[in-house]
Design a protein around this nucleic acid. Sequence first.
DNA 1: TGACTTTCTGAATATTGTTCAGTAAATATA
DNA 2: TATATTTACTGAACAATATTCAGAAAGTCA
Lengths: 157, 157
Amino acid sequence: MINLDDIDIKILSLIQDDACKSNSELAKQLGMAPSGILERVRKLEKKGVIESYNTRINPLALDQKLLAFIFIKSNESFGSMQLAEDIANLTEVQEVHHIAGDDCYLLKIRTTDSQSLIQWMRESLGKLPGIVSTRTTIVLETLKETSHLTIPKADKS
Amino acid sequence: MINLDDIDIKILSLIQDDACKSNSELAKQLGMAPSGILERVRKLEKKGVIESYNTRINPLALDQKLLAFIFIKSNESFGSMQLAEDIANLTEVQEVHHIAGDDCYLLKIRTTDSQSLIQWMRESLGKLPGIVSTRTTIVLETLKETSHLTIPKADKS
DNA sequence: TGACTTTCTGAATATTGTTCAGTAAATATA
DNA sequence: TATATTTACTGAACAATATTCAGAAAGTCA
């Protein structure tokens, strides 16, 4: 579908964990002109290879001390995604996945604390139609949390 | 612990989903001098409020079509985190959480496909000591996946 | 072969990052 | 209260970078 050459891979490797790295520095490290790099990056953006540039913020700094995963069973007719879309629209929800096994969604959510989670489940999640049951898993401690992808060494064209 | 004022909050709001936004533009939008913005951003980095600047890459572009969550039960003595650290060191693993309930870890992992997942579980995960059992959940479809935090409107001081 | 596209360079220019001296307000100190 | 000290910011100066663009070289296609 999308074909990335050696140089694209190197660019991605270099900017994945340093989104603000300058084109000039990329150019130096790859032995190219900055304008050439810029053109490639623009193309990677247009192709959808680069999805976004994000600043990762410490959740504790915003008083979001609680992280939880919630499994949700729905009674929607198969193929309908209304519930999942409704859930995805709730800002506290970071992830919504449709998972294998009994009509289930898995979502990842951050709130201030367990009280605010309960409150959120009653006032936001609970109002959505189609939920049959939920199973909540509270995170006690996070050892690793990244969106970093493992990038292969090189693949030429 | 960390005190953020109104301006800090606005800065974080503006750069959370646009890591490369220029200081000058931030300055314009906040009615400040670029140098003042720079000073605040540097301070947010030093305080650990800003953790990193990431480029989000489309996993499909790197042929990582499979996303899975794996629950792992360990037989480690309580308080030891050796297994969790070992798991966190595996590059395919994006997240490792210590979760409430029977000595369990939850991890998030990306691989090329289900075959490569099986292979990874045998050759990488399976070699780590301390694993009693695993339960794997395959993601069929992802509707939302972000590390975006909900930022409060304003809080003055 | 010839037209076309892709990818890159290198120069020119606009924009931005960064440093720094100085100011004003807030806070601490005596 | 009067006096330091710190903090947060401005605005100017300079260095670095982003961006545009014409043109060259190589590849592609008919």
